[in-house]
Design a binder for these strands. Sequence first.
DNA 1: ATTGGTGCAAATCCTTTGCAATAGC
DNA 2: GCTATTGCAAAGGATTTGCACCAAT
Lengths: 153, 153
Amino acid sequence: MIPRLADTDDVQDLVALLRARGQRVTSQRLVILRELRRRERHASAEEVHHAVHRDLPGISIPTVYATLELLAELGLARKLKAGTGVSLYDARTEPHQHTMCRRCGRVDDLECELDADALLRVARARGFRPDCAELTIWGLCEDCAAVAGCLDS
Amino acid sequence: MIPRLADTDDVQDLVALLRARGQRVTSQRLVILRELRRRERHASAEEVHHAVHRDLPGISIPTVYATLELLAELGLARKLKAGTGVSLYDARTEPHQHTMCRRCGRVDDLECELDADALLRVARARGFRPDCAELTIWGLCEDCAAVAGCLDS
DNA sequence: ATTGGTGCAAATCCTTTGCAATAGC
DNA sequence: GCTATTGCAAAGGATTTGCACCAAT
C-alpha cells in the first residue's frame, strides 16, 4: 500500500528513524508527516485528519493522534497547546515563539530571537531539566482586536 | 450568609470590583479568591473545589469554574494551561515564568527577569494586540528527570 | 508467521450549558 | 421584589483506551 502513495523521498528522515527503532513504516505515518510539512500553520489533529482523508479515506482519528504524538517524540514535530486547550502540531522544529489570541484561540509564529539563557540557568539550578524554552505572547489577534475595539469604545 | 464566613478584609479589592461592576458579592466568590491566595502553587478548578468544600460544603464545580474565570477577567487571577491541558489558576498576577514537566504536567514558577520587548514590538507590528508575554520552559521536573535518567542509561 | 498498527466504538476527562431554585441587592 | 448566581444534571468537545483485524516485517 505504501509504494503507490509515497515515494518516500520527502520523508526519508522519518523512514530512517522508524527503521532504527524497529518500528513499521506505514502509509498513515508518511502521509501525516507530509501533510504537516506542507502546511505553514500549526494544525490540530482534527485538521490533519480531514486533510489526509484525500489520500487515505479510511484513516481514523485515534491513528492521527497516535501518529502526531509519535512524530513529536521523534523530534519531527512540535506539539503545543492553543489558548483553547486544543493540541496543535507543527513540523517546524526549530525553536520559535507564538502569539495566541485569547478570544479566538488563533496561534501564529513570531520570527524573533529570544535569549532565555538566564532563565534556563535558573531552571537548571532548581533541578529542572529543560529541553526547550518558548515564549507565548497573549492578547488579541488583529481581527479580534478590531471587534473588541468597536465594543470597548 | 456572607458575614459569618467572611470578614472581607483580605478580599476588599474583589468586593470593590464587584460593586463597581454592579455584580453581587457572594460567599462563593470570596472563599474561592481567599483559597487561591492562600496557596503558593497554581491550582486547578478541581483542587479549588475540593479545598473550598470545608467552608462551603454545597459548592458546585460549575460555580468554581465560573468564579475562577471571573477572577481572571477582573485581573485578580491568572489562568494558564498546564502541559496536560488542564486549566490552572494563580492569584499571583505579576508576570512571571513557568517550568512545565512534559511527563507529569507539574508547573512551577520561575523567578527571573525576562526581556520580551523586541518580541512585543514585532507582534504589534503584525497587528497583534499583546497584553502579556510569558515564557514556558519545557522539560522534566526533578522527580521525572530522576526516573527518566534511570530508564535512559 | 509474528506482532505492531490500525479502525471502530466506547470510555474518559475537563469544561460548559440549560434551567429551576436561591440569595444578594 | 427583581434578577444575578447558584446547584444540579446533562451535554459537549478533545483525547485516549480496549479489542479484533490487518498489514509490515
